[in-house]
Design a protein around this nucleic acid. Sequence first.
DNA 1: AATGAATGAGCATTCATTCAT
DNA 2: GATGAATGAATGCTCATTCAT
Lengths: 224, 224, 224, 224
Amino acid sequence: MRSHGATTKRAQRLASIGRLLDAAQELFVSQGYRQTNLDQIASAAGLTKGAVYFYFRSKETVLLELLERVQAIVVDQARKVVAGTGPGAVDRLVAFLNQQSKLGVTHRDAVLLLILMSLEFSERKGPVRNMLRRVYRQLYALVERMVQDGQRSGEIRADVRARELSAIVMAIHDGTFLEWYRRSPALSGPEIVRALRGVMLTGISRAPARGLRGGVRRIQARAA
Amino acid sequence: MRSHGATTKRAQRLASIGRLLDAAQELFVSQGYRQTNLDQIASAAGLTKGAVYFYFRSKETVLLELLERVQAIVVDQARKVVAGTGPGAVDRLVAFLNQQSKLGVTHRDAVLLLILMSLEFSERKGPVRNMLRRVYRQLYALVERMVQDGQRSGEIRADVRARELSAIVMAIHDGTFLEWYRRSPALSGPEIVRALRGVMLTGISRAPARGLRGGVRRIQARAA
Amino acid sequence: MRSHGATTKRAQRLASIGRLLDAAQELFVSQGYRQTNLDQIASAAGLTKGAVYFYFRSKETVLLELLERVQAIVVDQARKVVAGTGPGAVDRLVAFLNQQSKLGVTHRDAVLLLILMSLEFSERKGPVRNMLRRVYRQLYALVERMVQDGQRSGEIRADVRARELSAIVMAIHDGTFLEWYRRSPALSGPEIVRALRGVMLTGISRAPARGLRGGVRRIQARAA
Amino acid sequence: MRSHGATTKRAQRLASIGRLLDAAQELFVSQGYRQTNLDQIASAAGLTKGAVYFYFRSKETVLLELLERVQAIVVDQARKVVAGTGPGAVDRLVAFLNQQSKLGVTHRDAVLLLILMSLEFSERKGPVRNMLRRVYRQLYALVERMVQDGQRSGEIRADVRARELSAIVMAIHDGTFLEWYRRSPALSGPEIVRALRGVMLTGISRAPARGLRGGVRRIQARAA
DNA sequence: AATGAATGAGCATTCATTCAT
DNA sequence: GATGAATGAATGCTCATTCAT
């Protein structure tokens, strides 16, 4: 009845699933999970509610598969980038932040989905919260390791514990995305990203103790 | 049936309203606005659903009145504190951040309500979004003014526009609260607040150009 | 909006619950549990679906409360009647069957509900099946005890184990009700009841062994 | 993909239909018609939903064809057995009951399907109900004729009208099957069948009037 | 001042059925 | 001969809201 470009069953299946997931992602991000109903998702994908149930077991499953995709995009990529950079901890952190900034442009909704769902599901136990915790734990661990390395090597300030310092890094990171999301047209994307990086790196750098001045400047140069 | 300390009608009225608003605030923060239903609010306040409609026109009105309270707590207080400090822009910013940190302890839910609702309602037009925008505009303006002053006086880095820099300040601020909310037991409250202040102030300070070293150190000292 | 005879809240509550349960019972019996939807129940009671949920937690709860009523009618009454008759086992059995026959007229739907639901839920575990099993276990036990007593005293044939013999009694009992339900207009109620009693009592009586002839006749006289 | 012994199209066709009908019968009996969905039937037969529609016009048609099979098994066989026995009415009745008992073992689900569907569809008009009525009418007629013959010849009690007496016979018959179905593991199959026959035959036999004692005994002997 | 009864719109989910391949 | 994709109607349940008392 409905005719799509490629007509093999397999292609149609993938196309429909893709359209449904894309539609769901956009709606979950812009309206929240709970406010989005399946009719909206389905019709945004050019299908009907029934089709959603043909491909997914439930509304929750749609979100879980979406988060699976997001995990691959956000966590796996970040790990790869971090692993491929070195040797300094700050270098890796810069690479990480650059990667996230790029994601913010190429996969804005994927990143926002992660952040927004982590808030919407923060107090509701169930598979979604578990999945989200898993993803965040991985990100936290990645950042915390870099911060610890940096503290050991003297690149990063040691007057705050690694746990709290990396929490700040994540907080700044998520906070900036949310701010951007909230005030979208009022803020310049590239500029805010650049500012973010500069502020964060300066902020976490080792305080320029006497005789070591220039440390901050050096870091800021790398981040530019 | 129910016994309240003061039994004047007026007192009882105020007490009921207070209990309802408190209950609503806690539930909206912990579960979100949409997931919270009026039965939960009412019974958490020791009343029934009908009573909510006796005091408020609708569920939305409950939130609006709550946001009115929050505005008084967050915006008005911040303005007063900022106005009563001086003369430097960074001094005022430090005072502002101190005030917010205190609020985070004394009025945790009020601050979180503001942040969380601003996300939940970000794409839903209506009176709530308007109210939230009003509150945030005031906060943005307050911070932006301080940043501009600091840039003019040379205390604050000028390589990023004031709008984006103050967006970063707000982002860090909100992001830290959310991070704290999300990982509550895993993070040390006082420590993260101290870290936040240190990181942010160092980060936004003027890059310690040659001959001006010590600027960052001075700022960090003030923030400690 | 809707005005019912008695207007105290308590009376209205009881009236609505009563109407809902009555409507549900009739519909469950005539159409089955699963084929009956809440709209039918509600509108048969002059209410809307929402009202059902005001009084009951779920559709299943409606059935459970109905079965509670039925238990009181069927089991408790039967026990009382049996306890109040004596001394012979057959006398008690006759009293039991008389009681059930009366119920079949005064509470036709209650009895049928029990039987039909026991079939519809026989393979579906859950609270309904548990409840049904509880009720049936009590009836089985009641009958089996009478049969055992009768076998001991020689009034009832002993060539079949009490368990199977009382199963037959229950089978005949339920089967007759179902037959009546299935062929309603074609069968004469009183006559079938009389026939049932006669057939069953003769059938389970001690086989008229040599020298004991007349046993069956005596029993049939009591049953008439 | 699927390998069947005989690979002629015709054979495969018949095999698939057979598997579907068998699967449907088992599921209809164990869960009821309405609770069984086509996916369950199809996958129990190792096929997919679409295949059901390839062979049958609708879910209802599946049941109708099943009932056709059942009719052949239950009614036609019973008629044949009754016709081949004689000369006494009770002899024929015994033969009928023996046949049904045998069916209960060899075609348990077929017999149960008939009984259970007659209850599930009793108040729902449509082709299924018509079919069921047709089958039952034939069985009723068969039994009623035997009872009438027995009453005329004096073998069977005449104090109850033939219609009601044969209703009792059918009631006992169906009731025993249902009881067995409901309490499967708790009852001994052979024993209950033997008991049933004994009870029923004694029960419907001519009341052992004075001078005719032994009648019951004779009948019970035949039924053993 | 507050309650309890009732409504109706909205929503996730199930399922028989259709149809192109 | 059979499958997989998709539909649409039905249904149990939730919940903000209204209103008589």
